[in-house]
């Protein structure tokens, strides 16, 4: 089957700590940190958005692609819930920036937090069907969370990019499965700046039921069990949910560790499980099986089973590793700077 020919990530260097947000709203930082299992989140500076994150992640994917000519990429799909324009595609700017125009198909995907895996799913299908040689799928977000809402502690920014192809694979996609129902757990109406959510309703019936639905279905389809996998990556709206769903499905903490980024990164929405996959590929060995399951409110999950090839050893050092972007050279900002960066302050036009 088709698979990953090149992968890459990009993250902002800026971070804000839970304590910094909590002190503004009179919230109890230790209980938020424990409840969300999260200590800080990434913050995009004012000159960074879904398009710029996507371009940098795509460039890193090209570096690991073994010389894929951008002109041979037949499609660019970007999944995000923070496309900079309401009307004007993100994909064409990214295509132009990496030199993939004009013979290309572009579409911006939206599906709450699973828009990125949706892009991966469609890109894989195009390559698999022989429609095109390569397709680029990008998961990128500069997530919104309403001030003082629980989401404000987690809504973060980042991007993961994957060039899908058939030859020269880094990871072969062995199986996919998608699982969707109509679930009113989280939404944002048109012209609203911040999303709304159903509080605790977003847990059991939404995230957990859907993630387990897609995970159990792909395990059954593939005839595999959790212990067959070297690693597993789940959608991570906070640190706690992916840890709990992994455990309930029979995966261990060791399996999720490399791709469990939320405690230090926050929830990168569409980027969450795809960026987790980049961090996991960074440490994977040839022959390893990687389990991946996204989740997007509304609601649905896309699950994938990847088999890592020997090429991983040749390419992993050709671009910056995700954990380096996550852990090193961070710039901590206070709430005022964060509010300015995220345009939460009313200005004169």
């Amino acid at each position: 089957m088709a698979g990953i020919v090149g992968y890459g990530a990009h993250l902002p260097r800026h971070r804000i700590k839970v304590e910094e947000i909590a002190k503004v709203w009179g919230a109890d930082a230790p209980s938020y940190k424990k409840g969300l299992m999260l200590r800080e989140k990434s913050v995009p500076p004012p000159d960074m958005d879904t398009i710029t994150l996507a371009v940098e992640a795509a460039k890193n994917a090209l570096k690991r692609s073994g010389g894929v000519n951008p002109a041979d990429i037949g499609a660019i799909y970007i999944g995000s819930e923070s496309h900079p324009y309401a009307v004007k595609p993100s994909g064409t700017t990214v295509a132009e920036a990496i030199g993939a125009t004009p013979d290309i198909h572009c579409a911006d995907f939206e599906f709450a937090c699973k828009a990125g895996s949706e892009a991966m799913f469609v890109a894989l299908s195009h390559v698999d069907s022989g429609n095109m040689k390569y397709a680029l799928a990008i998961a990128a977000d500069t997530s919104q969370g309403a001030p003082s809402d629980a989401l404000e502690f987690s809504a973060a920014a980042g991007a993961g990019a994957f060039i899908m192809g058939k030859d020269n694979l880094i990871a072969d996609c062995l199986f996919t499965h998608s699982y969707m129902t109509d679930m009113p757990d989280f939404w944002r109406r048109e012209h609203q700046f911040y999303p709304q959510h159903g509080g605790r309703f977003t847990g059991e019936e939404a995230y957990f039921a859907t993630t387990k639905g897609a995970s159990n279905a792909i395990l059954k389809k593939s005839g595999k069990k959790p212990s067959d996998f070297a690693y597993a990556v789940f959608h991570q709206p906070n640190g706690k949910f992916p840890q709990r769903v992994a455990k309930e499905l029979g995966f261990t903490q060791e399996q999720i560790d490399p791709g469990w980024l939320a405690p230090r990164l926050g929830n990168t929405y569409s980027g969450a499980s795809p960026i987790g996959l980049t961090a996991t590929l960074d440490v994977a060995k040839p022959g390893d099986l990687i389990f991946m399951c996204s989740y997007g409110s509304g609601a649905g999950s896309d699950s994938f089973i990847w088999k890592v090839t020997e090429r991983i050893d040749e390419v992993r050092d050709l671009a910056v590793k995700t954990h380096k972007l996550l852990d090193e050279n961070l710039i901590y900002v206070d709430y005022g700077t964060y509010a300015k960066f995220r345009h939460k302050i009313k200005m004169n036009d």
Partner: peptide
């Protein structure tokens, strides 16, 4: 060199990268 947003033309104008 990184790809960034260079100009934001008011709340309704084009974004320059």
């Amino acid at each position: 060199i990184e790809f960034r947003r260079i100009q934001t033309e008011s709340h309704h104008g084009v974004l320059s990268y």
